[in-house]
Design a protein around this nucleic acid. Sequence first.
DNA 1: GCACCGCTTCCGTTGAATGGGACGCTCCCA
DNA 2: TGGGAGCGTCCCATTCAACGGAAGCGGTGC
Lengths: 247, 247
Amino acid sequence: MANSASGDSVVDRIVRLLSAFPEDVSALQLSELAERSGLPLTTAHRLVRQLADHGLLDAAPGGLVRPGLRLWELVNRTAPTLALRQAAMPFMEDIQQVLNQNVNLAVLDGWDALFVERLSRRGSVANRARVAGRMPVHTSSAGLALMAHQDRLLQSQYLDQFADPDGKVATDAVRLLLSETFHQGFAQLKGVVDPDTWGIAVPVLDARQRAVASLGVVVPLREMRLQALVPALQTAARGIARRLGDA
Amino acid sequence: MANSASGDSVVDRIVRLLSAFPEDVSALQLSELAERSGLPLTTAHRLVRQLADHGLLDAAPGGLVRPGLRLWELVNRTAPTLALRQAAMPFMEDIQQVLNQNVNLAVLDGWDALFVERLSRRGSVANRARVAGRMPVHTSSAGLALMAHQDRLLQSQYLDQFADPDGKVATDAVRLLLSETFHQGFAQLKGVVDPDTWGIAVPVLDARQRAVASLGVVVPLREMRLQALVPALQTAARGIARRLGDA
DNA sequence: GCACCGCTTCCGTTGAATGGGACGCTCCCA
DNA sequence: TGGGAGCGTCCCATTCAACGGAAGCGGTGC
């Protein structure tokens, strides 16, 4: 901007401001927001007021700032995941009712699985896969199911990430995981997230057999009915794929 | 901005850009986006690129623009409705299963009910209450349930809206609706949205008996078990309120 | 081959964005 | 009770980032 700036644009600043809100919640003091976003207090104050004028933020008197309803509305009525969510919800509900387990839906974003929707079982084991949460590909069954069914090119780019620290060992391990996942048709991760749970996920494939999403469940470690879970998930995943194709 | 501008700030422009996406979907041509947002093509192009650099938009080559995953993520992990949604989901699922009807959750924003969550029954009648959709207070059972349990001050400000065109007639009609809703403890609207449906909604009340949300169902017109629906909704609403209070 | 249309890049102009400084408030501790 | 710390808010001269018209480029249809 004008005047000796840190070299970033207004857009940068706005993104920094929006990103500054911590994962869990909601209300933040103006001064803290300024510090978190690395902006001078004055600048943060002005931007917050401007954003609040549009309802993208909600600035309570006293400098208490929280995300605005209008921002939520704008994003959620045009979200890139809207069609996916609509197609998937009925099947996720079926899974939830029939298997009585936590169900989640994820897409691939960078090298993470981004969880788009989640239904949790009552009295369930903890499910870390929060909505809008992320998990690295190789530490989540959802991530593995997604990555295992991608372009060769993307996969090798992904695997290159692991080459840095330790040569090829880590790379080979992940490659093996992906290969198993691909050939089995589902990903299974035992106790990575939470030592007492299994994660199981299947890909939702498009017409070219690329994973556009993953459908998964998180079940207690003692649960032994894996054989029953996988076909149910795969059936649901096909149903989702069909509805996506229709639209 | 710099140079003879239309008098709006960068923030204004960004909001115009984000708001320009039509309700239904997702991909928009750059030129069309520019026109919808009322920005010069060049400006729209530059802003889109900047926003795309941060993942807030997704600019495909050829000028095809869609909302970005990162924006969705940012908003949905810090959303003002997050706690509400988490508290409400289990109860909404219960309602959906027990009553086998469409369920929706709304909050008041301005003079509209803003629908925050929705579960739809399989093979159900059409439910216009889309997620992130809006309906005016007086044309939705959710809106009535919300407005009937607000400050006197807010209510009278709301009612003043109707004074303009036709004197007091419309105002009195709405006032009556609100009063009925308040004393009954639930709102009921027959065939306003869709001639073949009922809308029924109850408020989720905080400790001061103010509605922070509404819980509603949309049922086919022939459905006669109103007496069974209302207590179930009220019970669920109390459950939601209790979980909100705990947190 | 020409004309059209849309995305992209370039570049001189300029006023909007910037942020240090000052003010006023409240709260807390001496 | 008085002083000081911490906070949000307002002011305003400086200046560089944002602006957008114009030209370039690639594709498509006549």
